Amino acid sequence: MSIQINDVVGRISYKCDVLFRVIDIREINGSKEAILFGEDIRLIADAPFHDLTPVGSDMRNEWKHRNEELIEQSLKLFSQDIQLLRQKYRYDVTQGYKQTSEFFQMPGKVLHMDGDPNYLKKCMDMYEKIGIPVQGITCDEKEMPQRIGSYIEKFRPDILVITGHDAYSKAKGSMMDLNSYRHSKEFVQTVREARKKIPSLDQLVIFAGACQSHFESLIQAGANFASSPARVNIHALDPVYIVAKICYTPFMERVHVWDALKNTLTGEKGLGGIETRGVLRTGMPYNKFMENES
């Protein structure tokens, strides 16, 4: 079978339920095996060549169209939420009276560390659409625990996203054993290192995890939100929607878990967390010169 690195493939045994890109090929005991990254799902997997089938442009376009529809629907719902929040801000800031000055908003700074540059680019594009200030860094999952401390000191984020690829392997052990996961252990260690720098759940809000990640360990390590309670796959953009909800919730209000999850593409099976304070601050009067300084 002629399958090369960067080819898009599906797994026959899983009825091609996820589209993967081949990122590496290795030979084990005379048999070829491919290392796979999900195209839109934060999943890493390996599969023998005999279980792979190339995915043609027609099927890829169909998947792309379907994925874009889901993203557009989630973005529309989120935008409606933001509009309602802004109306509330306007009323609260002016105490119900006709305002004489425009207010400005500071939604908080995000540091997004991602193990996959393609996923990071998709997330950065969505952050830009939503209007969230973000610093994006591509970092191998295994290096994250050593590098996170210096990044926090350098960028001083209000929200930290730690994600990339992950997967649970039943062959490696039980679902509660961190050693049964591709990168959950590294995500947990990274959260712990971040909490050494900023212990407060309100001063630094953390999202951590990827597909099938060890949710319980991530929350216990200090994450506010994490994946994946039911060990299911999550969409590449799911962290962005949770971050956006926190960014546009005032710092005096709490983000209830369901409110953060309802507009994600995966929902409560793939994502969960704890009640968390928002980070948005509103001020006035608005000065157009602030745009040039931000």
Rank of each mutant, 00 (worst) to 15 (best):
183 H>Q: 10
84 L>P: 03
162 I>P: 02
219 I>S: 02
143 E>W: 05
168 Y>M: 05
216 E>K: 04
253 E>R: 02
269 K>L: 15
33 E>Y: 13
232 V>H: 00
266 T>M: 05
242 I>M: 05
9 V>N: 01
104 F>N: 11
99 Q>A: 15
63 W>K: 07
186 E>R: 07
142 K>P: 10
42 R>I: 00
113 M>Q: 02
114 D>S: 12
245 K>L: 09
236 A>Y: 01
288 K>R: 04
49 F>R: 06
81 D>Y: 14
100 T>P: 09
278 G>H: 06
154 K>Q: 15
120 L>V: 05
70 L>A: 14
252 M>S: 14
150 S>G: 08
156 R>D: 14
231 R>A: 12
123 C>D: 12
55 V>A: 11
191 V>S: 03
140 D>Q: 15
191 V>L: 00
7 D>L: 06
113 M>D: 04
157 P>T: 06
57 S>K: 08
72 E>P: 02
123 C>Y: 05
133 P>H: 06
195 R>H: 03
281 R>F: 07
39 E>A: 15
96 G>A: 10
187 F>S: 05
258 W>K: 12
293 E>I: 04
37 F>M: 12
124 M>K: 04
176 M>I: 02
290 M>W: 12
103 F>H: 04
276 T>F: 02
225 F>M: 10
272 G>V: 01
162 I>H: 02
107 P>W: 09
13 S>H: 03
27 E>C: 12
203 Q>F: 07
4 Q>S: 10
171 A>S: 11
230 A>E: 10
79 S>V: 04
113 M>A: 06
114 D>N: 14
242 I>H: 00
139 C>L: 13
33 E>I: 09
130 I>G: 06
240 V>M: 01
154 K>S: 10
132 I>M: 00
122 K>H: 09
125 D>R: 03
215 F>D: 08
60 R>A: 11
247 C>R: 06
229 P>Q: 11
152 I>G: 08
29 N>T: 06
193 E>L: 11
167 A>K: 11
179 N>T: 09
118 N>D: 14
36 L>I: 10
209 G>W: 03
37 F>A: 12
11 R>E: 11
213 S>E: 00
68 E>S: 13
240 V>K: 01
99 Q>L: 09
202 D>A: 11
34 A>P: 05
59 M>R: 08
155 F>L: 07
289 F>C: 07
104 F>R: 05
294 S>K: 03
262 K>I: 13
122 K>A: 14
212 Q>Y: 00
26 R>T: 15
134 V>M: 06
175 M>A: 14
150 S>R: 08
223 A>Y: 04
67 N>T: 13
184 S>H: 03
241 Y>P: 09
282 T>W: 01
280 L>D: 04
194 A>D: 01
153 E>N: 12
198 I>T: 13
155 F>N: 07
207 F>W: 02
135 Q>E: 15
